[in-house]
Every structure is written in structure tokens, then in C-alpha cells.
Nucleic acid binder design. Structure first.
Lengths: 113, 113
DNA sequence: GATCATTGCTAGGTTTAGCAAGCAATATTT
DNA sequence: AAATATTGCTTGCTAAACCTAGCAATGATC
């Protein structure tokens, strides 16, 4: 089970967007977005993944990999055998840490209002 | 319409394979393979595309593109003047935020469960 | 020429992607 | 406090992915 839902939910919340705001910018219904985030969709369309990647400023490949699709560079199917995700300037970060960082980003961006 | 069907059919015939031979090696039913080749499937699973790409010795990206899916186009970290530090898996992060995240990472890793 | 295997393909089915409409809970406004 | 708007989510629904079983046509084997 790939559990990419919590990841894209964390991405959305880090950007302080509502499901309906995302719907507006991606043309993906908020109902379906909710299903994506709560793990009810196994194989979302690459097109929708691409839209979300663009809106959330993450790479298309990252989302593909999270979902469990083969990724070109990776030259194979990846079921997250490697628990460490290479990160920009933050160094190696585990998936769990990644979620915590996204949650903290949300906090950071909300604290002055 | 993207007409990738004739392409993968040509690939198969170039390799002198029957639908059932392809079925054996890819675990994709010959019935469905036929539908793929005759333009009856609009959005085939990336996983199946990957299997076919491997068997036919073409790149996964090529098939993705033929189908009409967005293809990952080396959009790694791009040098820009914007105050964006990283487009990693956390989305766009400013330099300031990045410092806070690093600090928080340190905190995360030092706390005991 | 008759029989049998192999070919690509269709019919009919189950499962899932994705949507429109609506729900209960929370937030906002008056 | 009451009315209203916004939130995430669930409930059916349609369409499409993908399968099993079978078809007609061609090819082999006797």
C-alpha cells in the first residue's frame, strides 16, 4: 500500500489550500481530491498527478514514485525499497520526517496572521 | 486522439510476437492487448506501459508520450532569482523557511520516542 | 478434404477512476 | 445567539480499465 494520500494532503495543507481551491486550479473535483487524500484511489491518472505536482511545486516524478508507478530515471517499479528520500538542501529525509516537515511548514506559514 | 495503438502494434509485429506471447511475458491479457492496439483504451496504466516498453525495447517515456501522458522532463532544481531555495518534496520553500526546517529537523532527530 | 491449433478480436462481466450533489461539522458574519 | 458560508467528506452514479470466455478466420497436420 503506497499511502501517497497523506503526502499530497500534507502538501496541500502546507500551502494552506482548501480542497475547493485546489479544485478550481486543477479542475479535479474536491470530492475526488478528498478520495485521493484518504487513500481511496489506487491508480490515479498521470494527468491528475501532473496537475497536482505543478500546483504543489513538487516534481511530477516524485508524485509518480509516491503512487507506485514506474519512474523513468529509476528504471523500474519502486515500492519504496529505499526509506530515504534524497532532498534538496535538507539532506536525506525519511518519509516520516517529510510529513512532519510539511506539517511544520504549515505551522510556520500560519503563525502570523 | 493519440493513436498510440498502431505504434505498439507495429512494435509487436516488428518483434514477431503474437498477442498471446506478449500476454505470457507481460501478464496483460491478449484481449486487452488487442484493445490497446485497436485504439479502444484511452488511458492505459503506466504499469502496463512500462511492461510493454521493456518487452519492446523502447523507453518508458516514449510510450508515455505516445499515449499523451505528461512526461517527466528533467525539471530538477532550476536556478532562479526567486527566493525559492528548494523544489524538493516539500514544495517551494524560501531560504528563510529552509533554515527553520533544518532547525526543526534537528529537533525531530534529537527527541526521544 | 477433414481436423485441430493458432491467430486477432469481440462480448459480457467486475472493478475502479472520477464527478455531481449533498451531508454534518466548523467557521464567519450579522 | 442565529443565520450564513466554508470546510472535508460520503453517497450514488457513469464511464472506462482490464479480465475470462468465446468467436470466426487462418494455418497447419493427417
Amino acid at each position: 500500500m503506497s499511502n501517497y494520500g497523506t503526502y499530497i494532503k500534507a502538501l496541500r495543507e502546507a500551502k494552506n489550500l482548501t480542497l475547493r481551491e485546489v479544485e478550481k486550479q486543477t479542475e479535479i473535483s474536491n470530492a475526488y481530491l478528498s478520495q485521493l487524500e484518504t487513500g481511496k484511489v489506487k491508480q490515479p491518472s498521470p494527468l491528475n498527478l501532473y496537475k497536482l505536482a505543478q500546483l504543489y511545486d513538487v516534481s511530477y516524478e516524485t508524485l509518480m514514485e509516491k503512487v507506485g508507478y514506474p519512474v523513468p530515471q529509476n528504471n523500474g517499479m519502486v515500492e519504496s525499497t529505499e526509506p530515504i528520500a534524497a532532498h534538496g538542501r535538507l539532506g536525506a529525509v525519511t518519509d516520516e520526517e517529510e510529513l512532519e516537515l510539511l506539517d511544520y511548514l504549515k505551522f510556520i506559514r500560519n503563525r502570523r496572521k
